[in-house]
């Protein structure tokens, strides 16, 4: 598996798009920090960007990489390699290279700015951790879609739809249901609902980590009470991990039954 991972990884590291992605973050980091001159504000802005852009990029790269590396995949399939090895290797290779672009792209400007002397280092770290989780999650979802759709246009369309659903539509439905059931206690409901969408979960984890939690009022206090405990943290990272493990498992399952 490691060999495949390595080849996928280096293959991507040489592709133009990885650089574009890396440079995008690099530029973003520098602009935010040196125009704003405020690490904590830069982190809040980054939060907004990360919970939207990282899933989007993960989705697009996941789907593009799968379709573009079909030849590579077919070549590998004829070799004495397990299918699980090939697909998980590619999945992890892609996710790792995207995560690395994120880490370096944002890490370098923050390092240059003097992150280690700032108290914001833990906020930055949790931002990156969440970003890495989101990358792994959305690459896995995208590869699932790609595996089930031979038609590239269709696959691409579905992938964007999944992203749109998670990033926008889900929250819209969430908000509408909150407003409809206004007369009932909704704290537990909203806690559970936000658990099921990795983007919402990540956003709330970061919001609570940053001081913004105070804005969340009573509901926020309840969230804080839940996420503030080790148990709550465990649950949320367990859920995030499920979002990786289950799609990854489906990748394996589907790939075992697919013809090339």
């Amino acid at each position: 598996m490691f060999k495949i991972l390595k080849y996928s990884f280096f293959d991507l590291m040489r592709s133009r798009w990885s650089y574009v992605y890396f440079l995008f973050y690099l530029l973003l980091g520098f602009v935010l920090l040196f125009l704003n001159n405020d690490v904590s504000k830069a982190i809040i802005t980054l939060l907004n960007i990360i919970i939207v852009i990282v899933p989007l990029i993960g989705t697009i790269f996941g789907i593009m990489y799968y379709y573009n590396s079909r030849e590579f995949t077919e070549l590998l399939l004829a070799q004495p390699l397990k299918r699980t090895t090939i697909f998980l290797g590619q999945y992890i290779g892609l996710s790792v290279s995207l995560s690395l672009s994120l880490l370096l792209g944002l890490g370098i400007p923050f390092l240059v700015y003097g992150l280690f002397e700032s108290s914001e280092i833990w906020n930055f770290a949790s931002l990156i951790i969440v970003g890495v989780f989101l990358t792994f999650i959305f690459v896995a979802l995208a590869m699932n879609i790609a595996l089930s759709n031979e038609n590239r246009i269709k696959g691409f369309g579905y992938a964007i739809l999944v992203w749109l659903f998670m990033a926008v539509i889900y929250d819209g439905l969430f908000l509408i249901s909150l407003m409809l059931f206004n007369d009932y206690p909704l704290d537990k409901f909203s806690l559970i609902i936000s658990m099921f969408n990795p983007i919402d979960l990540s956003r709330i984890l970061i919001l609570l980590k940053l001081d913004i939690s105070a804005l969340l009022g009573y509901t926020g206090a309840l969230f804080n009470k839940f996420f503030g405990t080790n148990w709550g943290m465990f649950i949320s990272f367990f859920v995030l991990s499920c979002w990786i493990v289950i799609p990854a498992w489906i990748i394996v399952y589907k790939s075992m039954r697919k013809d090339f």
């Binding site: 809040i44 939060l47 907004n48 919970i51 939207v52 990033a167 926008v168 539509i169 929250d171 819209g172 969430f174 908000l175 909150l178 407003m179 206004n182 909704l186 704290d187 409901f189 909203s190 936000s194 983007i199 919402d200 956003r203 709330i204 919001l207 913004i212 804005l215 969340l216 009022g217 009573y218 509901t219 926020g220 969230f223």
Partner: peptide
């Protein structure tokens, strides 16, 4: 305005949907 009517909605703070 929405968060005033439905305080729980504040958990959607800084989500893309809210920005939209």
């Amino acid at each position: 305005y929405i968060a005033d009517q439905t305080p729980e909605a504040i958990v959607l703070l800084r989500s893309l949907f809210v920005d939209i």
